[in-house]
Amino acid sequence: MKQGFLAICAAATALLAASVAQAGTLDTVKDRGKLVCGVSLATPGFAAPDDKGRMQGFDADICRSVAAAVFGDGDKIEFVPTNINTRFQALQSGEIDMLSRQTTQTFSREASLGLDFGPTVFYDGQGLMVAKSLGVSSAKELTDAAICTLPGTTTAQNLSDFFRTIGGKFELVVFESPDENRAAFFAGRCEAISSDRSDLASIRAVANNPDDYLVLPETISKEPLAPAVRQNDSNWRDIMSWSVWLLMAAEEKGITQANVDEMLKSQDPDIQRMLGVTDELGAMLGLDNKWGYNVIKAVGNYGEIFERSLGEKTRLGLTRGPNAQWNAGGLVYAPPFR
């Protein structure tokens, strides 16, 4: 019901907002003095406040990198927790300047929702988790099983597609709240729980005994998670995209939060351009020339962000997998800075 209410509010906002901000988002953000970024409702690893109330997580740091690019200060930012149903409306109506919320880039979203996606920041895929005691080793064995999910956009559809492909049936049990969904799975209401693999890792992390559960090997969908901005604002989209690519390129070049000051003296022309020592890349986007330096100084490089929030030392314990650099067997590949 709460979701319904929020959705209605979002619809009402769209109805009533007499004129949607058509001016460049960069100017709007600069005038306001802070970036407003839409993130998840408390999802550990991606966006959740810590005990001091500071928003932590992978998605939150992506937001901070853009704030640092614009203001030279990653903390000139306001986080707006967005609901899975209203996240796009929040962006469309101008309530937020960018959306960084575990959102899968899809054709129909890009084509019909009035938004543009940036680079993929996390290559995810939908998986299934079962109790080890079930004795199942492949998702294909799950015919006739009950599967718990959240009312995700693509989650239910991917499952339907998967079972249609293997010619089986299943019972879908959909919960609005992640807590209910987890509780029902752990109580045995469903044989399996399905979500993005990163999410399954965090569900498994909160189980009484994580070793009792097994994430099945099949990845039944591609879920490239990407940040998004409103359509038809090229400049703002460039700022978001290149801030993200900067994080990735910095990892490739070995620039870290700790050594970025020394890197200013580096003789590598790529590093010199990225950190604004030579050339004027920042000015081309309407930013300060030291934007690259500011971004790394504020949040570190892509690898650091990943390890800090999602990596093997965290509760989620994810390996880099497809999110490793292209020269290390992964898909992370930033275009050149020149």
Partner: peptide
Amino acid sequence: VMVSNTVMNQTGQAI
């Protein structure tokens, strides 16, 4: 409401 929410998520046509 639940079916509508799923539809809304899929199509983005909230209004």
